[in-house]
Simulated scan of single mutants.
Amino acid sequence: MNIAAIAEQLDTAMRDARAVPQLSEPLSLDQAYQVQAASLARRYARGERRVGVKMGFTSLAKMEQMGISEVIWGRLTDAMQLADGGAVPFDRFVHPRIEPEIAFLLAADLPGEISETEAHAALAGIAPALELIDSRYENFRFSLSDVVADNSSSSAFVVGPWQTPFADLADLGFTMAIDGEAKQTGSSAAILGDPIRSLVRAARLAAAAGEPLKAGDIVMAGGATAAEALGPGNWVTLDVDRLGSVSVTIA
């Protein structure tokens, strides 16, 4: 198993926005995370810096469907962050999709094992957010380990205005619209029952990988609804109860 070669293949696919075949040799989950780390190391060497992490498979129904009992995670870099209300070229992606989320901004470092109360206490801000996911595999076909190796399909993200943290995040209404038409509605309860639980898991997983969460990090809590496919010219808006709105245009 050549971890470095697979990392190079996926990194090149990301840079060129060109799909590659599904990995021919199955990876274990541990190997997949090794590939992800090696792929991101290439990006850090080019000058990108890690600004946080994203969580995936945070829907309990999705976890049951995939036959897994743990969420997955990926790294976020400064080059992945888009401006709220800004635009990003469609040709930066292979076959992009977008999903509504909540983002956390940390005011304090977080160790690996924390309670939900400790997670709340470490927050500097909460915001509505959109994540653009983009598997680099042909025909959007992949296994769980393929996804993890491919930075858990994370490609770009946009965060709305930061709001002062408040206690109850468990049932905030979401409406995501494309070109003014509501496409997905839901609740933050879809994120592990309460998005703060996603932050607790993020702290544990990042610390176990030797990259504990630090003050200033952004944590994307995971999709609150199904993702929507994107095309050139799409304008996407997300409104979240008590948090406000965020938008991005696909140029």
Results as ranks from 00 to 15, higher is better:
Asp78Glu: 15
Asp78Tyr: 12
Asp78Leu: 12
Ala79Glu: 15
Ala79Phe: 14
Gln81Ile: 09
Leu82Trp: 10
Leu82Cys: 14
Asp84Asn: 13
Asp84His: 05
Asp84Ala: 15
Gly85Trp: 10
Gly85Asp: 11
Ala87Met: 04
Pro89Asn: 06
Pro89Trp: 08
Phe90Ala: 03
Phe90Gln: 00
Arg92Asp: 13
Phe93Trp: 03
Val94Gly: 09
Val94Glu: 04
His95Cys: 14
Pro96Leu: 05
Arg97Ala: 04
Ile98Cys: 05
Ile98His: 02
Pro100Lys: 06
Glu101Arg: 10
Glu101Asp: 11
Glu101Val: 12
Glu101Pro: 12
Ile102Trp: 08
Ala103Asn: 03
Ala107Pro: 12
Ala107Cys: 10
Asp109Ala: 03
Asp109His: 01
Leu110Ser: 01
Pro111Trp: 11
Pro111Gly: 10
Ile114Phe: 05
Ser115Cys: 09
Ala119Gln: 09
His120Gly: 06
His120Ile: 06
Ala122Cys: 08
Leu123His: 01
Leu123Lys: 04
Ala124Ser: 14
Ala124Asn: 05
Gly125Asn: 05
Gly125Met: 08
Ala127Gln: 03
Ala129Tyr: 12
Glu131Ser: 11
Leu132Ser: 02
Leu132Asn: 02
Ile133Thr: 07
Ile133Val: 15
Arg136Asp: 04
Tyr137Cys: 06
Tyr137Val: 12
Glu138Leu: 14
Asn139Met: 13
Phe140Asp: 14
Phe140Gly: 06
Arg141Asp: 14
Arg141Trp: 07
Arg141Ser: 11
Ser143Thr: 15
Leu144Cys: 02
Leu144Ser: 03
Ser145Ile: 07
Val147Tyr: 06
Val148Ile: 14
Ala149Asn: 03
Ala149Trp: 04
Asp150Lys: 01
Ser152Ile: 13
Ser153Leu: 08
Ser154Ala: 15
Ser155Asn: 10
Ala156Arg: 13
Phe157Gln: 07
Phe157Pro: 04
Val159Phe: 00
Gly160Val: 05
Gly160Arg: 01
Gly160Asp: 03
Gly160Pro: 04
Gly160Asn: 03
Trp162Pro: 12
Trp162Tyr: 13
Pro165His: 08
Pro165Trp: 10
Pro165Phe: 09
Phe166Pro: 09
Phe166Lys: 06
Phe166Ala: 03
Leu169Arg: 01
Leu169Phe: 05
Ala170Lys: 14
Met176Trp: 02
Ala177Lys: 00
Ile178Glu: 00
Ile178Cys: 00
Ile178Gln: 00
Asp179Arg: 08
Asp179Met: 06
